[in-house]
Design a protein around this nucleic acid. Structure first.
Lengths: 150, 150
DNA sequence: GTAGGTGCAAACCTTTTGCAGCATG
DNA sequence: CATGCTGCAAAAGGTTTGCACCTAC
């Protein structure tokens, strides 16, 4: 199964980087990889606790930090002070549109956008580590709902 | 002076929108307009308190909300849970590169980037309210410092 | 055996809110 | 003079940290 394979990749990478591979990390990684949504730290904690009720919040946060630095997970600000995470393994890079009405997140991708960002960075002598393009607005469904109400 | 003029524009707009024009709002707006940096709410509070030590934190936040909704100010997540604001009056829209080493923020602008975002939104039937493109990485100066150290 | 990781609870930081009093229109 | 705004202090929400114990290597 895909999750098992990716789980193995993460394990190998973290071990090679000198991290210990604990039961908690294994569980958190597996849970994150199985989660196809954009999840909050709190949601991930809940999911993990279904398997092992005594996983601590701190460990989930600490593990998310490790995973984010290793590049397996990406966090994106939701604009209201919170963050959502998504795993990146096996996904192509994409950007996000966030509906301010219903909170839905849509993914999209545009190669040209990427290229122009790189060009802009080069112009300034800046080395890109990551980038985040978020478009906030109203999604098709909410627009439709608004119109039918009016 | 430019700040006075912009201050007048904000005042007129808010009055017209049914908001009251209080001493506090006047002070906060003037201070924000005079601040050419990307400031945090707390920094703005400090600056205001130099003029009037009893301005409250709540009023600064409430005023920032009003200004943001009116489109005079834009907030951007710093990725660490905080936000920085900038005033928008008289500035063209631009995006940001944030140096992860030194925290410096660089502005850049690319019309084609804007157009392609609009095209992507149109494809999904999404109406854009605002968007935020942040590129994280290492700035020219920090890269140079790294190299000279090595 | 010894780093490094974990769980707990408390601390932290930024932002929001309830409420009584005040000032604007 | 009524409503909207302010200041205060407390609450809220998300995340981090100190510390004693535990466990992978």
């Amino acid at each position: 199964m895909k999750v098992d394979q990716e789980h193995g990749i993460v394990e190998a990478h973290l071990r090679k980087s000198g991290f210990r591979w604990t039961n908690q990390r294994s569980l958190i990684v597996r849970t994150a990889l199985s989660s196809h949504e954009h999840f909050t730290a709190e949601q991930l904690l809940d999911l993990c606790r279904r398997q092992d009720p005594k996983v601590s919040r701190a460990t989930v946060y600490r593990t998310l930090t490790v995973l984010e630095q290793a590049g397996f997970v990406e966090g994106l600000d939701t604009g209201d002070g919170g963050r959502r995470f998504e795993h990146v393994l096996g996904h192509d890079h994409h950007d996000h549109m966030v509906c301010l009405q219903c909170g839905a997140i849509f993914e999209f991708c545009d190669e040209e956008l990427e290229r122009r960002q790189e060009a802009a960075a080069k112009r300034l002598g800046f080395r890109i580590a990551r980038h985040s393009l978020r478009i906030h607005g109203t999604c098709r469904d909410c627009l439709r709902a608004q119109r039918s109400q009016a």
